[in-house]
Design a protein around this nucleic acid. Structure first.
Lengths: 137, 137
DNA sequence: GTAGTTGCAAATCATTTGCCCGGTC
DNA sequence: GACCGGGCAAATGATTTGCAACTAC
């Protein structure tokens, strides 16, 4: 079982204030991909003293530490997810906005192969598939 | 040789004003992926009467017509490229910001297969690889 | 004790829009 | 000539920042 966000913050020597603890917990519990505004709403529910600016500052700090990864879908808002988990990609339901995570070893290998062929070593990648549910019509 | 942006605008029954002609030409000549601000700079160089708002309105119109596709890299600015060309993906040089386009039939097929396995029919996709140039060290 | 954090409000940045004028079909 | 498109400046939405008060280490 991987460390919690809180653990990883401590490992990075971050000063753990009350608001950071709450934000870390919200992130740990989030099974979806909440935008910053949504993170703030959840954190604010635990402690009404947490400001939106603090949430923005915190996710930015955690991203800089490599604890979070920023993902941007098509709605102009940034979302964050825990980094360092097994790599995975996203399939986005264009009707509902629902995000489905998946991993496919074949496609991972292919991405590396392509980059190498082009003379590059990958430092990151992002694959987003947009689609509609197949209905048995 | 595919139609020019101007041709495709006419085919879509768009009213071709002077500013739209210039913007279409700038887009045809662009071999890179200029952000809107940059498109405006180039168009403005041809006719100093073209406003930024017009460029925004024009790219949005062309996107709605399926003439352009919006691509968003990691700097928060929207970029556009001609749609309807052969599908391709992007490799972004993390040191220089340079964008390399590539196509790989294997990865295209795999994307479809994965979506189908998950119960979806693809309506769009985006693959961005971030990497550093391999130097013969 | 002190440097790192926070809240609040004002500032930025990219993008959009209202309004009224001008040009295209 | 009607209607769409354009310029300008003000509005918007997401995110950032200056500053003074606060707090974890």
């Amino acid at each position: 079982m991987p460390d919690t966000i809180l653990d990883r913050c401590k490992q990075n020597g971050l000063r753990m204030t009350g608001q950071r603890k709450i934000i870390a917990q919200v992130l740990d519990l989030a099974k979806d991909h909440p935008a910053v505004e949504e993170l703030h709403a959840r954190a604010h529910a635990q402690d009404s003293k947490i400001s939106l600016a603090t949430v923005y500052r915190t996710v930015k700090t955690l991203e800089a530490c490599g604890i979070l990864e920023k993902v941007e879908f098509r709605d102009g808002r940034a979302r964050y997810e825990a980094a360092g988990r097994a790599h995975h990609d996203h399939l986005i339901d264009v009707d509902t906005g629902k995000v489905i995570e998946f991993v496919d070893p074949e496609i991972e290998a292919l991405q590396d192969k392509i980059a190498t062929k082009l003379g590059y070593r990958l430092t990151g990648h992002r694959l987003e598939l947009f689609g509609v549910k197949i209905t048995s019509e």
